[in-house]
């Protein structure tokens, strides 16, 4: 893409991406563009490949066909490219995946110190700033096991933010949380969206999707079935499968 300026190029681009687990065709001809600052919410029934798709964006999963470009870097077997992409892409997992043997502060400063080579003091200042942002500044010296689920997930978000990523990926960030803790995590994510972070978010929180999404993506059986702005997506879904899915999750 020599003719386009970096600013107008998409931050994330998937072109005809295919992936198989053994014989099972899990991603089928996925095409997706995400512009800088755009927020994309991916939804779909379980087993539809949405988690696999989002995990291909930082190469936690390998795609077998097609092309994935993130922040201008193509994801291929080149380890340098993979490392470069992972430095720019933060990820938040369903199960938090905090490091249980490290304190909250150490969780936050680990990657900045070892990957970005920041001095410890600077990394700690950044860490405290983001703990403040996710509204748990007083938990810095506790271990993850001593926090509630909602607090752990907010620490996980802060941990990703400490790397100052260009893109944030969320893989069902509220699915493992007790109902009363979902809001505290979503609030942090809404705040992040308002600041212009590029976000791809797999979630079933349709209220959140309506508030922040620029684009809804509906996946089923490894395919992108529908892609539309949230207003149209929720008001007039075009495909039967989308309609069926929405009626199921919005019914109650």
């Amino acid at each position: 893409m020599s003719d386009s300026k970096p600013s107008s190029a998409p931050m994330i681009e998937l072109q005809a991406v295919n992936k198989w687990y053994g014989e099972f065709h899990v991603l089928r001809d996925i095409n997706l563009q995400v512009a800088r600052g755009e927020k994309v919410v991916v939804c779909g029934p379980s087993g539809s490949g949405k988690s696999t798709m989002i995990r291909c964006i930082n190469r936690l999963e390998e795609h077998q066909q097609g092309r994935i470009t993130v922040a201008g870097i193509e994801l291929n077997a080149d380890l340098k490219n993979i490392d470069a992409v992972r430095r720019e892409v933060g990820m938040v997992f369903q199960q938090f995946n905090l490091f249980p043997h490290l304190t909250v502060l150490q969780n936050l400063t680990l990657a900045p110190i070892w990957v970005r080579k920041l001095p410890k003091k600077e990394a700690e200042e950044t860490a405290r700033y983001y703990l403040e942002r996710v509204r748990i500044p007083d938990q810095a010296d506790k271990y993850p096991g001593q926090l509630s689920g909602g607090q752990q997930q907010r620490v996980a978000i802060a941990r990703s933010l400490c790397m100052k990523p260009e893109i944030m990926l969320f893989d069902e960030p509220t699915s493992a949380l007790d109902p009363e803790m979902i809001k505290e995590v979503l609030d942090v994510m809404v705040g992040l969206a308002e600041e212009g972070m590029t976000m791809v978010c797999v979630t079933h929180e349709m209220g959140f999707a309506r508030t922040v999404a620029d684009m809804m993506v509906f996946m089923d059986r490894g395919e992108v079935i529908e892609r539309a702005p949230p207003k149209d997506f929720f008001a007039n879904p075009k495909s039967d499968r989308t309609r069926a899915f929405l009626s199921q999750i919005l019914a109650h």
């Binding site: 930082n58 936690l60 992972r86 997992f93 490091f99 990957v115």
Partner: peptide, 8 residues
């Protein structure tokens, strides 16, 4: 996965 995602 978390360590990989952080770029370690």
């Amino acid at each position: 996965e978390a360590a990989d995602a952080l770029g370690l």
